[in-house]
């Protein structure tokens, strides 16, 4: 069964960057990429499709990343979804908050595409 990666970011360019970076995985492995443009859309996708890995931006309209992360982690059925928080905020408080909510990782923008690839492979066990 194909592994599903969801990218949730309101910034079109960041979404594109992540998509294009992760396309490499799609070519090599059995991986499917999905995107969402805000928190609500992302949450709806997670609930419907149960992706394996989610790149979740924190500052987003409608519902922020923390909120999405909290709801997902509180849901017994979704707890195994691995969430990587992406943020431009580098403050330690944010980092702590994200990890306390159950996110697996916290990545600060700007990030290195290679790092994204490496982390994704680790998380998906590829």
């Amino acid at each position: 069964m194909a592994k599903k990666i969801l990218i949730v970011d309101d910034e079109v360019h960041i979404k594109m960057l992540l998509e294009q970076t992760l396309e490499e995985l799609e070519d090599e492995y059995d991986v499917e990429l999905f995107t969402a443009s805000d928190g609500e859309e992302g949450l709806a996708f997670i609930r419907g499709e149960h992706p394996d890995l989610v790149f979740l931006d924190i500052m987003m309209p409608k519902m922020n990343g923390y909120e999405v992360c909290r709801i997902v982690m509180e849901d017994e059925g979704l707890r195994d979804v691995k969430i990587i928080l992406l943020t431009a905020k580098g403050q330690e408080v944010d980092r702590k908050q994200g990890l306390e909510l159950g996110a697996k990782m916290y990545m600060t923008k700007p990030f290195d595409p290679d790092e994204i690839l490496k982390v994704s492979k680790d998380m998906l066990g590829l």
Binding site: K89, K109, P113
Partner: peptide, 13 residues
């Protein structure tokens, strides 16, 4: 921090 880092992410990435 947010406004600068986001475009930098795109440029660098």
């Amino acid at each position: 921090s947010h406004e600068l880092r986001t475009p930098m992410t795109s440029i660098l990435g």
